[in-house]
Design a protein around this nucleic acid. Sequence first.
DNA 1: ACCTTAGTAGACCAACCGGTCAACTATTTT
DNA 2: AAAATAGTTGACCGGTTGGTCTACTAAGGT
Lengths: 204, 204
Amino acid sequence: MPRVSDMKQRLTDAALDLMWENSYGTTSVDAICERAGAKKGSFYYFFKSKSELTVAALEAEWNKNKANMDGLFSPTIPPLERFDRYFDYVHDRLAELQEECGSILGCPLLSIGSEVSTQDKGVRATVDRIWDRKIKYFESAIRDAHAQGLIAAPDPEAKARALFACYHGTLAQARIQNDVGLIRDFKEVARDVLGVKQAHATSS
Amino acid sequence: MPRVSDMKQRLTDAALDLMWENSYGTTSVDAICERAGAKKGSFYYFFKSKSELTVAALEAEWNKNKANMDGLFSPTIPPLERFDRYFDYVHDRLAELQEECGSILGCPLLSIGSEVSTQDKGVRATVDRIWDRKIKYFESAIRDAHAQGLIAAPDPEAKARALFACYHGTLAQARIQNDVGLIRDFKEVARDVLGVKQAHATSS
DNA sequence: ACCTTAGTAGACCAACCGGTCAACTATTTT
DNA sequence: AAAATAGTTGACCGGTTGGTCTACTAAGGT
């Protein structure tokens, strides 16, 4: 098997970067190619459409982040602390990206998903699938917290979905208003949504 | 002043419909014209760009909804009940639209805002402005609820923003997954976010 | 050395994009 | 009735879009 290439990955990386910063619709195949240093021919050698590339890009992003997520939501960490760590991590990452590109970018799954959901079944299904995987982290943390009596969550799956939705709404609002503030303060909102029992002072 | 026309409104209506159902990017000027029964020339007679049309469309939508919002959030209604009524209203409306077009459409402010926020300052500012107006309804309801001792909300504005973000995240997730369920269940999540004190059974 | 195969190159396409413009029509004021 | 104004028309523009196609090249196996 002659000749190897990292072009496929360069294309998915470029696509996700551009779509995250701008949008699915305004990210043209030409622009993706240019950023990846590829020519049209290469693009359509690896992917048969922009839609298919997007599916691959989202899955690739998930694979990149999975190990990190596993670490943040490790069962060795107290359940409620897992959320704090995760929210802190996302906050820091988005703040870092804001320095680079001037904008709070929010979550690409939500931006892209919301944009194409009524038009592109493939991308929509992919967003859905990855979304569900991420919710699983929330779900088991919630179940653990419930088992330890830290919260009252008889239906961990529903609670996880609700919290996930609230979090993504916050990320979206932060993107629209270009303001990290909401993300920084989300930990407290999360405690309310989770129904954390004891009101323990965090600091100050 | 000769000749009157309702074309301007037909154009903003058409634009919002199409952008809500699909997206900003995929809604072409041609498509807007076709739905409004206008020709390109008329479009650019009333608006100097697609971006400006969008601003007008969002403001027009706000004006259409304002009276309704005023009714739902009337100070004559007990504060927490205002939220219930509002959430019910949005749920019913989205469910109705789903019958028509097959999809849960979420909130156009979020969809459009998230899509164009990094690229179009005018539209972004408009979304921001309307967003703030809507939050005011939440804010005063929260303040009233706090005054009546129903909830503990020392910072009503922050609480309002948080609840608004959570709600929109739920609407976005409902759009992506094309599922009304989350919206139907949001009232309970809202109670958690608001920190409603007494656990009163609603029904069943 | 040469064949096979994975990957690259870039010219090319029709359709569509947002936007312009000059000519035209309908309506009200004078 | 005619002038002034508000609105309409549709041909037209250059650039871009997603996507195709054929010719090519680099590398591993034999």
